[in-house]
Design a protein around this nucleic acid. Structure first.
Lengths: 186, 186
DNA sequence: CGCCTTAGCTAATGGCATTAGCCTACGGGC
DNA sequence: GCCCGTAGGCTAATGCCATTAGCTAAGGCG
């Protein structure tokens, strides 16, 4: 069975290292093969193709994000939980901007489970606001949009001015919270 | 001067058509050359390379978005202006999802002017809330994050459930508005 | 009327993904 | 302890794409 060094998981590990160090565009099979000390075609023994590898990477990132989110919410509720969730999300994206950019948003069966867990955590974070059915769905969508939008823009370096990003993000959290508190009327 | 059919602008036009019809990943010089009825290397007479073409495409999209945004805000103020801006933004992204995905968020000198105009429009839309200096910057950042996050997720088809997206988006607008109204404390 | 600029061309290079087919070392069963 | 099947590696080949170099012709301008 040869060196046994490689496996689908190991390939994803290397892929994440490539992404972190060289950016999502550098995620190429030959870059990974180089790091693995293996010829490029050998990777096809572990991964169907580049597209599938991207999905696997995305799934891994989603899993990490789920872990972060779940820790953030743990033992908190209400505004506190929501703020912790948003802060955790943002800090993950800021710590690993390339990794975050490798997140695929289009729903894929392979990442459906992780995505569902994430939605579950968001729902839990929103529990204190007493949202029922559709209202909860709308709230989760907005929360996701806010967190993702901020994370993407920050990761891309789109916020140029000198103002403190922590403060901007606190305002975003305030918007979500105050919007949820007064959601009756809209 | 040969056929005079091509020019940098014409190349961008074709590029936009490719993006719209086949998605951002299909944006390739040879696809454009095919549509232009020209050999691939000929395009280098009009555009420095693929990377620059992407930036030009992004600039064009940003310009269109600026137009939409400015029309939306025109003749309105306060909550009304803000909601119209958000609705216009979202509907542009929904109408041209691939085009919207081709938007490059990382600041580039070539798109700086369009980006500044966009920020200017957002500032105008926020005028009624009486934000000064830094507070206005934070508000623009949050508005951008909310609009962009929702647009990206919708364009990617990330919102799966059956609930009405208009309603979700109305809630998002409500969050922004109510957050701005109560922004003192945070 | 000739020149020069310019937009097009072909040829060549190199990176990458992907497929096909080969080779071999291990591990389980005898 | 030996045999064989399988799995994981390899090389070779293909094809697409971007990019560069150098050629060519056509149109405007003097």
């Amino acid at each position: 069975m040869a060196r046994a060094a490689l496996s689908p998981d190991a390939v994803v590990d290397l892929a994440l290292r490539v992404v972190d160090e060289e950016g999502p565009d550098a995620l190429t099979l030959s870059a990974i093969a180089g790091r693995a000390g293996v010829a490029t075609p050998s990777l096809y023994k572990h991964v169907r193709n580049l597209a599938e590898l991207r999905v696997l990477v995305s799934g891994r990132v989603m899993g990490e994000l789920t872990e972060i989110a779940s820790e953030a919410v743990l033992g908190r509720s209400g505004d506190d939980a929501l703020r912790a969730l948003m802060d955790g999300w943002r800090s993950y994206a800021a710590r690993h901007p390339h990794r975050y950019s490798a997140l695929i948003q289009a729903p894929r069966p392979e990442t459906a489970e992780a995505a569902d867990r994430l939605v579950g955590i968001m729902l839990a974070a929103l529990r204190a606001y007493g949202l029922e059915g559709s209202a909860a769905t709308h709230a989760v969508r907005c929360l996701r949009a806010a967190m993702h939008g901020f994370a993407v823009l920050e990761a891309a370096g789109a916020f140029q001015l000198a103002e403190d990003l922590d403060e901007s993000h606190a305002l975003l959290a305030h918007m979500v919270i105050s919007g949820l508190r007064t959601a009756r009327e809209h």
